[in-house]
């Protein structure tokens, strides 16, 4: 009963948004605000001609490589630093500072170093993802109950076993949180780098439409990116839910950090 009403309400909200969009298009003119239907048709045409897949796969590649190159050390380093409290204390202010640096502002530097090809996009994504994963994993490693570790040590577990059986399972949710939060950033970071300077990718697609004054293409490209981000979020959330079924979750809090891009 309540559920059905909620679903109906939600459908109404979506319908309302589309109606508003249509109205905006009518009042501002289709050149400035293309109506929903032509945008969908353009998106479909892009998909059929293979242009969408080509540009999306370029963006995906940049995001995926950056994700790997930044995420892997971000997930591993905290486990190493756990064993070296002094080193981690020394590194701490630098890592906090690195976290605070606006990585996207480094894009011109990366373009300078790596050119306008995919490498500079990968660098942007990796620098963003590394810190997100690093700090989430560090939080996980720190959240481990020291009593559990002590207990394991008392019963004679080796350090390797402790790392594998005690620390790793407790940290997994946090690593996942880091990866999940990073997903939209990885895609967003790649898109932004492409916006600044590129000749391929979804960000370039937006830029191209704007340069040719084809707002309908701009809209279609933005819609495509939005759908891809939503899809990627849903995918990571789904994987996480499956793996970490035992943890309670709160939908809004989970997405809290992904509002930024």
């Amino acid at each position: 009963m309540h559920k059905a009403r909620t679903v109906l309400d939600r459908v109404l909200v979506v319908a309302g948004v589309i109606a508003l969009w249509q109205m905006a298009s009518l009042s501002a003119g289709a050149y400035w605000v293309p109506a929903p239907w032509p945008v969908l048709k353009t998106l479909w045409a892009m998909a059929q001609s293979g242009a969408l897949a080509r540009h999306a796969s370029y963006t995906f590649q940049a995001a995926a490589w950056g994700f790997l190159i930044g995420g892997l050390p971000g997930a591993v380093l905290p486990f190493i630093l756990r064993r070296m409290p002094r080193l981690s204390a020394i590194l701490d202010p630098y890592l906090v500072g690195g976290y605070g640096i606006p990585k996207l502002a480094l894009a011109p530097l990366f373009i300078l170093w790596f050119g306008i090809g995919i490498e500079s996009k990968i660098a942007v994504v990796a620098s963003v993802v590394f810190f997100l994963v690093f700090f989430n994993t560090t939080a996980g490693v720190r959240a481990i109950d020291p009593k559990l570790v002590q207990m394991a040590r008392l019963v004679g577990a080796s350090e390797l076993l402790i790392a594998r059986r005690v620390i790793w399972p407790s940290a997994v949710p946090f690593i996942f949180a880091g990866l999940r939060v990073s997903t939209p950033y990885a895609i967003g970071g790649a898109v932004i780098a492409e916006l600044i300077s590129s000749n391929r990718g979804l960000g370039y697609l937006v830029q191209l439409g704007a340069m040719n004054f084809k707002t309908v293409e701009v809209f279609a490209a933005i819609l495509a990116i939005t759908l891809i981000v939503i899809g990627a979020n849903a995918l990571v959330n789904g994987i996480e839910r499956r793996l970490l079924r035992w943890r309670p979750a709160n939908a809004l809090n989970k997405d809290a950090a992904s509002g930024g891009m």
Binding site: P184, I187, G188, V191, I192, L195, L202, G203, V206, A221, I222, I225, T226, L227, V229, I230, N233, D255, S258, G259, M261
Partner: peptide, 8 residues
Amino acid sequence: MGIPKFAL
């Protein structure tokens, strides 16, 4: 939230 703000 999935709308890429900068792409706007």
